[in-house]
């Protein structure tokens, strides 16, 4: 059971790799090779920083998006996007200009603009994951968030509250994306990753 963790220069790559191993992943391939992704049983896309530079970095890996499309969308391999890796599922991101995402889940990633000045941006710290739709992997609990932009669109599975609802998880079919950082969410995060490793959607 190979899990391909896509290496496209994302800052949280090693933290996600460490957490996946701690969650019990025994066959982890940290890879920039589309061939490995095309054969993987599961795929994880990490990501921190700006939407546009992450999208450009992912497109910069020759053949990677095609391999992801093939393996996830046509062959239904389980996929997890984390933080900006989740945001990239959207059609567009509006961070430092307008950038095209993967377009796997209809939506736009926009800046958080709480009207209450006590709600700070970045949204930084532990907050609730509150499921709004049934999903085998996403359970209520407290997870660590660290972001200034959030997904607004279809297929929302869970929200959190930061002066109003903010998307915490999105998903459809074998695709799941989480805004929070499971790799930084201690027990809650590791338990979530264990469920992903066991997921047979």
């Amino acid at each position: 059971m190979t899990l391909a963790l896509i290496d496209y220069g994302a800052g949280n790559l090693h933290s996600v790799a460490n957490a996946l191993k701690a969650a019990g992943c025994t066959d982890l391939a940290v890879t920039a090779d589309p061939e490995v992704v095309a054969r993987a049983d599961r795929i994880v896309l990490p990501g921190v920083g700006a939407f546009g530079s992450c999208a450009a970095a992912l497109r910069g890996v020759d053949g990677m998006i095609e391999a992801m499309e093939q393996r996830v969308r046509r062959e239904a391999a389980p996929f997890l996007g984390v933080c900006v890796g989740m945001q990239l599922l959207a059609d567009t991101g509006e961070e430092l200009g307008t950038h095209r995402g993967l377009g796997w889940i209809a939506g736009t990633v926009r800046r958080l603009e709480p009207s209450d000045s006590a709600a700070k941006v970045p949204h930084m710290g532990w907050n609730d994951v509150m499921p709004v739709a049934e999903h085998a992997l996403v359970r209520p609990g407290e997870a660590y968030f660290l972001h200034s932009y959030a997904f607004d669109g279809a297929d929302v599975i869970a929200t959190t509250d930061h002066d109003g609802p903010v998307t915490a998880a999105i998903g459809r079919d074998t695709i799941l994306g989480v805004q929070f950082h499971p790799e930084k969410s201690q027990h809650y995060g590791l338990a979530f990753l264990r469920r992903f490793l066991d997921w047979r959607p």
């Binding site: 709600a119 949204h123 930084m124 710290g125 532990w126 907050n127 609730d128 407290e142 968030f145 509250d161 930061h162 002066d163």
Partner: peptide
């Protein structure tokens, strides 16, 4: 609830 106060 809202984002939690953090103890560091």
């Amino acid at each position: 609830m809202t984002v939690r106060a953090r103890v560091i």
